[in-house]
């Protein structure tokens, strides 16, 4: 995009990610959609729930499965001013993951706070 987004309506978008990264195209596609929304300066929030938390696992290396290592893109989100990244604690706990296992800075929140986040968003996209 060469022009700044024209001053339009800014809505609170929530992108809910519930799938593991490499078994389907959803996680990568979600990122593409998020980057487009961010390029148009929308108010973007990401939520990682259930197997979606595996998307943020650090040290992913896809060289031997011949796919693009899109996990690196999560680190670019900050440059796109996407800084509201929330991970549900219960989903992490169930999978034996800790904050240290994640590739980017996130906010780990309880189910109860995740509930509030979903309720407070204006438009929800599910992946």
């Amino acid at each position: 995009m060469e022009e700044q987004a024209e001053s339009g309506i800014v809505k609170k978008f929530l992108y809910v990610n519930r799938r593991a990264p490499h078994g389907s195209i959803y996680a990568h596609e979600a990122l593409e959609v998020v980057l487009i929304a961010a390029a148009f300066e929308q108010d973007v929030t990401l939520a990682f729930i259930d197997d979606g938390v595996y998307q943020l696992k650090k040290n992913q290396d896809t060289a031997d499965i011949n796919t693009k290592n899109f996990s690196k893109i999560y680190s670019a989100l900050e440059g796109y001013d996407v800084e509201k990244i929330f991970v549900e604690k219960e989903s992490l706990d169930e999978r034996g993951l800790k904050e240290d296992d994640l590739s980017v800075d996130v906010e780990i929140i309880s189910s109860n706070d995740m509930k509030k986040l979903i309720t407070a968003s204006e438009v929800i996209f599910n992946f």
């Binding site: 519930r18 729930i49 259930d50 509930k115």
Partner: peptide, 12 residues
């Protein structure tokens, strides 16, 4: 899938 279970947990 756990969609039902997660909905029960996260719906207001």
């Amino acid at each position: 899938k756990n969609s039902f279970e997660t909905c029960m947990r996260l719906a207001a």
